[in-house]
């Protein structure tokens, strides 16, 4: 298990072009939103949260397909399929590595981005925590659907059929970020945590099942 974790991190460190890609894509996408509301502080502070969530979602979508599909093409997945470690654990670790290497850097830079969007600094810590707790769900749902579409490499197909699965997370995430309650155990926050836990538990099993279906 630790070996897989080490291998994945080594892969990210040595050929982590998609991490840089996701990072720059995120910043460019945010820039697009900011330019579309150029000079209007009211609009800017209104669309800030949406811009952050959507950019995060798009950068996750564009990098996730690479994680599973490259392994499938190069045949690594065949080995993982017959390895001693259950496929569920492997998929869980892979997604965790993706989340740590791609999403965490983005979340760390988000407070800086939010300041440029004229969002008051009282809310930024709360938004940061909401993003930290909500974003694993985006990664895990993405892995699940990416495993479903193994036999078709089209990025366009993957993006189109994944977006409907993101509705619950996106709705809850933006609702929590713009909510006025500061108590982090209010009902909407609890629902967000529950949503994250649900997808984190569900995703590895569905991913492993989908891979096995694709090989049969």
């Amino acid at each position: 298990m630790l070996n897989i974790l080490r291998l994945e991190f080594l892969l990210v460190i040595r050929s982590g072009s998609h991490v840089v890609l996701a990072f720059s894509f995120f910043l460019f996408f945010i820039l697009l939103f900011a330019l579309s509301a150029f000079g209007d502080n009211f609009v800017l502070s209104n669309i800030g949260l949406t811009a952050v969530w959507l950019s995060l979602l798009m950068s996750i979508l564009l990098t996730l397909n690479k994680v599973i599909h490259e392994d499938y093409e190069s045949g690594i997945l065949d080995y993982l399929l017959i390895a001693d470690i259950p496929l569920e654990v492997t998929m869980f670790l892979k997604t965790i590595v993706h989340w740590v290497s791609v999403v965490i850097p983005l979340i760390i830079i988000i407070p800086v981005v939010l300041i440029t969007f004229e969002i008051s600094s009282d809310h930024i810590l709360r938004i940061f925590i909401v993003l930290l707790c909500g974003s694993p769900s985006l990664s895990f749902i993405g892995t699940m659907i990416s495993c479903l579409t193994l036999s078709n490499r089209s990025n366009f197909l993957f993006t189109t059929i994944t977006i409907p699965f993101y509705f619950p997370t996106l709705l809850l995430g933006i609702f929590c970020c713009s909510s006025s309650t500061t108590d982090l155990f209010a009902l909407e926050y609890l629902l967000l945590y529950a949503n994250t836990l649900f997808t984190v538990v569900l995703s590895p099993y569905i991913s492993a099942y989908a891979i096995k279906l694709n090989y049969s």
Binding site: L148, T149, S151, P164, A210, L213
Partner: peptide, 14 residues
């Protein structure tokens, strides 16, 4: 196979 799994997951997420 793939669409069946998609449909079941879809009903949960819808």
């Amino acid at each position: 196979n793939v669409t069946s799994l998609f449909c079941i997951l879809g009903s949960v997420f819808a």
